[in-house]
Design a protein around this nucleic acid. Structure first.
Lengths: 213, 213
DNA sequence: TTATTAAATAGACCGACCGTCTAATAAAAT
DNA sequence: ATTTTATTAGACGGTCGGTCTATTTAATAA
């Protein structure tokens, strides 16, 4: 009785896919989607492209995602989190002084864009630039993403400030915003110039400006 | 004879449109195209959109432009020149000190994005971000555009250096590159944040960093 | 073992939109 | 009236996102 109420008797018919398998397929779509949007943005990434990469039929797609817009939101959220975690790995690395942690991130980012032949950038930057052509519902998510990443950089800058590496009166929140503003421009420039130089140039300028020397 | 050689006899058939009318129509398409690409980029701007704005039929479009790609190149070139002229107006204004000229440009840009409800940005920045989805032939044009604009800013910074407003050893060419790198990121952020603040924030950071004070 | 049922998959189909191209029309000279 | 050339109208084939239906699969009930 009690157990019957908490574990309802299985009805006839094909059972739903095992949670694990369901998630596996869903994750495969997400991976393919992240790749596509990081390279081509939202508008130029088609559902068929993504399906082709993972050999998944259209019917299955709509089993996992209600629409392209919902899929896009999931991708934005996942990218923000994935990138935040990657950022944290660098910025929380206490074996390095704070500004060198930021440099470590920059180095990783630079080898990433190079590895992808300067065809990929930042998914959030891509969609930010497409803001006039994509669903308005994305905007707040993109904003929150930037805010999260900025807060991580701000934390790093605060530690740099505590260590006297930057001015005691530096507004770390504002500096972190400015870092990301310029950084997104640098990422875009890597595609135009086919070079990672904009990333380093921007980073060196930024740190030279904020450093106590 | 001589006049006949310089004004060839009209052949049979429908005469071409008067040069003036031809150019008028072509310019109308270009204007509509500039508006569209400044807001939505290349991929999301359709020929039909542009035609609708100017009430021009599709067949006429191909009379003026061989393809969407050729049209796009024309728009890129025109935008670069238009923007360069606008920049020069600000940066060559000898009634202001050099850095205030740059500020004047920033103020104009800020009121522009505001006037268009933060839906428009920089056509070149838009296409730069779309680089992985648009014809490769655009890339060098975009690069040349940035280089032109950067050279104008570099000239202004050199004058600031001569006047002792920035360090004597400042690399003005490099600083101008960095300015534009970050500027494009700021322009993108105006669309996400629905605010002109990123433009001013970036500009103030940049000038604070390079100024002798 | 067979029938029933429900989930998952396969992919056809639809309407809208896209860029390009060809046929139709217009405007001239012969 | 015919011929010729320029301009315009809109057809065409392809791609897109989304929907739908048929088929297959995997379970339980009879």
């Amino acid at each position: 009785m009690d157990t019957e109420k908490t574990t309802p008797k299985r009805r006839r018919g094909r059972p739903p896919k095992d949670k694990k398998d369901y998630n596996e397929t869903r994750e495969a779509l997400i991976r393919a989607g992240l790749e596509s949007l990081t390279e081509k943005g939202f508008v130029s990434s088609s559902i068929d492209d993504v399906l082709k990469k993972e050999k998944i039929p259209k019917g299955s797609y709509y089993h996992y995602f209600a629409s392209k817009e919902e899929f896009g939101k999931e991708l934005v959220d996942r990218y923000i989190d994935y990138f935040a975690n990657m950022l944290k790995k660098h910025l929380d690395d206490s074996s390095l002084p704070p500004l060198e942690r930021l440099e470590s991130f920059v180095n990783t980012a630079a080898s990433g864009v190079k590895r992808h032949n300067f065809k990929r950038g930042c998914l959030i930057g891509n969609l930010g630039q497409e803001m006039s052509s994509i669903p308005e519902s994305f905007r707040v998510r993109l904003q929150k993403g930037f805010e999260l990443w900025q807060s991580l950089v701000a934390g790093c800058l605060e530690e740099a400030r505590r260590e006297g590496m930057i001015c005691a009166d530096a507004d770390c929140t504002k500096l972190a915003e400015i870092f990301w503003t310029g950084w997104e421009g640098a990422v875009m420039r890597t595609k135009v110039d086919q070079s990672e130089a904009p990333l380093f140039d921007y980073f060196h300028f930024f740190t030279r400006c904020i450093s106590n020397k």
